[in-house]
Amino acid sequence: MINCFRNFSDVITKYILGIVFSVFFILALVVKAMYSFDDSPYFTFNKWYDFVFIVLCGTGVFLMLKNREFIQNHINFKVMFCIYMVIAICYIYLVPLTPFSDMEHMYKAAVEIATGNVRNVYQDPYWTTFGGNIYLAFFYGIILIPLPKSIISIKVVNALMVYIFIYLISDIAKEYGVKYNKLLFIFLLFFSPLFLYINHIYFDIPFLFFEILALYIYKKQKNLIYMSIPLVFACFLRLNGFIILLAVLLSIVFKKEKIKKAKMMEMIFLCIIVFFIPTGVKKTIDMLYVPDVLPSYPALNQVYIGLNEKEFGFMDNDLSYERNWDDIINRVEDYGPTKLTKIIGKKLFGYGHREHIKLRDMHLEVMYQMS
Rank of each mutant, 00 (worst) to 15 (best):
I229V: 10
I259S: 05
Q302T: 15
K261F: 14
L246S: 08
Q302D: 14
S192R: 11
K283N: 12
K258P: 06
E211D: 12
P230Y: 01
D204Q: 10
T279R: 12
M287C: 12
L294E: 07
F269K: 10
L194S: 11
M264I: 14
I198H: 09
V303E: 04
A234F: 00
D204T: 09
A214N: 08
F203R: 09
A234S: 08
Y226V: 09
A247F: 09
Y202Q: 15
K310Q: 15
I305A: 02
V232H: 04
V253W: 07
N223C: 06
S251K: 06
K219D: 10
D204H: 07
V281R: 03
Q302R: 15
M227S: 08
N223I: 08
L300R: 07
M287S: 14
I229N: 04
N199T: 14
K282V: 00
F236Q: 03
Y216D: 01
K256F: 08
F195Q: 08
F236K: 04
D204F: 07
T284Q: 12
S296I: 08
I243V: 10
L239F: 11
I229G: 02
M227P: 05
F269T: 14
L246R: 04
P206Y: 07
P193A: 07
Y304A: 02
G241D: 00
F269P: 01
K282N: 00
M264Y: 13
